[in-house]
C-alpha cells in the first residue's frame, strides 16, 4: 500500500531529505539582474570557453554539479544518482555532463519544470531508502534555446510583449538522507494541462493552468492553506502568466496573491533588461531556487516555501502542425525544519 501517498497527486516524505548544498552558474545578463549576488559563478563569456552554445550549456551543468558536490566535501563517486534534464533535443546538456561525471544517471524531460521534477524524484528515491546522496540538476541557455526553438541570434526580428527571455543558467542541488535542512517535505506531481493556448510567444499563459492546477491540488491533498507558506513561487510564468495563475487559483477558492511570485519575474529587472514578460527556461527556477531561495531558507528569512516549476511541453514541430501548448507544473514543499 502506498503509505506515503496523500490525496490524489501528493506524496508526504516520511524521511524528508535534506538539501546539503546547491550550486549555480549563470550567464552575464542574469548576473546583472536583481539576484546576481546570489549566484556562485557568473560567466563573463556565455560561450564559457567552448566552441558552441550547446557545449557551453553542458559545461555549465557539469560544473554546477561538481561545485555542489565539492561544497559538501564529497566526490562524484559518493553520489548514488543524478536526475537531470534540459531543453535541447535528446537532452544533450545533461547526458553529456553525465558522461563526464560518471554518476548513475536518470535523464528527464519536463521542459522548464525540470528543477522540481528532478527534486521530486530525488526526494522520493532518498525517502524510499534507495540512496543517500542524489543530485538534482537542470540547465538552459538563451543562445542554444533560440537556435533550436526560434531564430538565429543575429536575425532582426521583433519579440511581442508576451514573449519571455530564456535564462542562461544551470543549477544543481545535492540532496542527502541526513543533514540539517532545509528539507523537502511534500511533493505534488502535476498533470498535463492544456487550455488551448497556441501562441508559442505566450508560454506564460499556456503554463498558467498547469501551475494553478498543481497549487490547488497541493492544498486539497495536504489540507494546507496558503498561510502555511511564507512564499509560493512558480518557475517561469513571467508577468503575464503570473497574473493568470493568481486569477485561476482564486477561482479555485484560494487567495495566494500576497505571498506569491514567479522566478521569471524576479530574476530580471523587467523594465531595464528588455526581457518583455520575464524569464523562462529550465535554468530560471533552477538558479532562483539553488541561488536565492536556498540561501534565504538557510538564513531563516523563509521557513516554508512551495516551489512550482512550470514547463511548456511543446516542440517546434508540434507548433508548426498547429497543436496547442500543453503545460505541466510540479510542486515541492521545502521547509527549514521538520
Amino acid at each position: 500500500m502506498a503509505v506515503k501517498k496523500l490525496g490524489i497527486q501528493t506524496v508526504k516524505l516520511m524521511n524528508p531529505p535534506s538539501i546539503l548544498e546547491t550550486a549555480t552558474i549563470t550567464g552575464s545578463k542574469e548576473g546583472e539582474g536583481p539576484l546576481g549576488q546570489y549566484f556562485d559563478v557568473v560567466l563573463s563569456d556565455d560561450l564559457y570557453g567552448e566552441e558552441s552554445w550547446e557545449k557551453a550549456e553542458s559545461k555549465m551543468t557539469r560544473e554546477a554539479v561538481k561545485l555542489a558536490i565539492n561544497k559538501a566535501n564529497l566526490h562524484p563517486d559518493n553520489i548514488d544518482y543524478m536526475f537531470s534534464g534540459d531543453l535541447l533535443n535528446q537532452i544533450i546538456s545533461s547526458s553529456f555532463a553525465a558522461r563526464e561525471l560518471q554518476i548513475p544517471f536518470f535523464g528527464l524531460y519536463g521542459a522548464c519544470s525540470t528543477m522540481t521534477e528532478s527534486l521530486s524524484l530525488s526526494s522520493m528515491i532518498i525517502d524510499g531508502g534507495y540512496a543517500d546522496y542524489v543530485i538534482a540538476a537542470t540547465s538552459s541557455h538563451f543562445a542554444s534555446a533560440e537556435r533550436q526553438y526560434r531564430f538565429p541570434l543575429e536575425y532582426g526580428g521583433q519579440r511581442p510583449p508576451t514573449s519571455q527571455w530564456t535564462v542562461t543558467g544551470a543549477g544543481a542541488a545535492l540532496l542527502s538522507s541526513s543533514g540539517s535542512g532545509p528539507y523537502i517535505t511534500y511533493v505534488t506531481t502535476g498533470r498535463v494541462m492544456d487550455f488551448g493556448v497556441k501562441d508559442a510567444n505566450n508560454m506564460g499563459a499556456a503554463m498558467a493552468p498547469a501551475a494553478a492546477d498543481t497549487i490547488l491540488r497541493h492544498f486539497k491533498d495536504t489540507g494546507f492553506n496558503p498561510a502555511y507558506y511564507d512564499l509560493i513561487i512558480t518557475g517561469d510564468l513571467g508577468k503575464v502568466g503570473k497574473e493568470l495563475a493568481v486569477e485561476l487559483v482564486k477561482k479555485g477558492g484560494y487567495d495566494i496573491s500576497n505571498i506569491y511570485t514567479d522566478c521569471g519575474v524576479e530574476i530580471f529587472d523587467l523594465t531595464e533588461q528588455d526581457v518583455h514578460s520575464g524569464a523562462s527556461g529550465c535554468g530560471c527556477s533552477a538558479v532562483v531556487f539553488c541561488g536565492y531561495l536556498y540561501k534565504q531558507l538557510k538564513e531563516g528569512n523563509f521557513n516554508r516555501i512551495l516551489l512550482i516549476s512550470t514547463g511548456a511541453l511543446l516542440s517546434p514541430t508540434s507548433s508548426q502542425q498547429g497543436e496547442s501548448i500543453p503545460g505541466i507544473a510540479h510542486a515541492v514543499a521545502i521547509e527549514r525544519s521538520v
Binding site: 488551448g196 493568470l244 479555485g252
Partner: peptide, 19 residues
Amino acid sequence: LEKQLSEEFKNMVDKNNPQ
C-alpha cells in the same frame, strides 16, 4: 471547475495580454 475555467480562459488571456 476545470471545464468552466478552460472555457473562460481565452477571455482571461485576451484581457491580460499586453499589446
